[in-house]
Design a protein around this nucleic acid. Structure first.
Lengths: 163, 163
DNA sequence: TATTGTTATACTCTATAACTATA
DNA sequence: TATAGTTATAGAGTATAACAATA
């Protein structure tokens, strides 16, 4: 039985993930934390606003790490901590006007990065890949953390984003 | 325009990658370096044997990191450094008999882990996902490093693994 | 002069624990 | 008593640079 690195799921995921991080590096050069900073900005620009614990779960990072990342984004005036009227221990992370503009610009650039990473595949295959990956990610995310981000996203999409 | 974390390629890859690492954690509990240690073992069990620089490229890690990881695997008698007859600077990393047995056992376990991570998808979709991911990984790997691991793997597969 | 591998150092990232304030 | 967030500390992981051996 031949030992082929090529067929290993962990290896393939790592290679593609690193390729994406490297390809997005230039677009995210001014965002503290790179892809994670962008993901925080995405969460902060989304609805409804969530607190730090929920965002940390979505991103798969420790809440202590998130504190520093939010500090950096707040220092650049991209996001703000808002008191949660329902729970005074909790802080809702929301994007500022500048943060939303930055997020919009970054999203456009990252779409091109994604297209580049997926460029080895024909368009139909790339779409299939994204759909399958989305299913896997949502399932993995819903099993592990207590909150199911994907269901929320589906609801928001259905309500607020008329296609 | 809604800001959905759910549609971000980087986020999805990260979620699935973390899910895989976590799912494989138990199977790889005795392997130094976790998934990376296993990948080194895979490379060491494969043909033809390669030197440390080539393996570091395949795994996307620095050669200085690989030195320590190989030290640990060698200490457990799973791999050995062999002098390269063609270049006395170079060291070929090969699996020992025990290393091959360990690799075989780990591979069986990791196949179950992979099946678990892919279990949200119907079997046909899981196969499609793996095929598409493989294409992306091979392309990314062939663009970045100088060596094209995937072509080598295809050749080896065609020659030595009659299906 | 360039390359392979090693070592030492420093830096970054992440995890652990203790603390404050709320619930 | 439990939770949200912060801070400080330590640990793991990673990168940088200098070195020896070889090409």
């Amino acid at each position: 039985m031949a030992a082929n690195l090529e067929g290993d799921l962990g290896w393939m995921l790592g290679v593609v993930f690193r390729a994406y991080v490297k390809a997005s590096d230039h677009a995210l050069r001014d965002v503290p934390g790179g892809p994670r900073g962008y993901q925080i900005l995405t969460a902060a620009a989304g609805e409804p606003p969530r607190n730090q614990g929920a965002i940390a779960e979505d991103l798969g990072i420790d809440r202590t790490v998130l504190t520093y990342l939010i500090d950096d984004l707040e220092r650049l005036d991209l996001v703000a901590r808002q008191p949660d009227p329902a729970d005074r221990r909790s802080r809702l992370v929301v994007a500022t006007t500048e943060g939303r503009a930055t997020w919009q610009r970054l999203q456009d650039e990252l779409r091109r990065v994604e297209a580049h990473v997926l460029s080895p595949l024909p368009a139909a295959d790339a779409a299939s890949f994204l759909a399958l990956l989305s299913q896997l990610a949502c399932q993995a995310q819903s099993l592990d953390p207590l909150t199911n981000l994907c269901e929320v996203a589906e609801q928001v999409k259905a309500v607020s984003a008329p296609s």
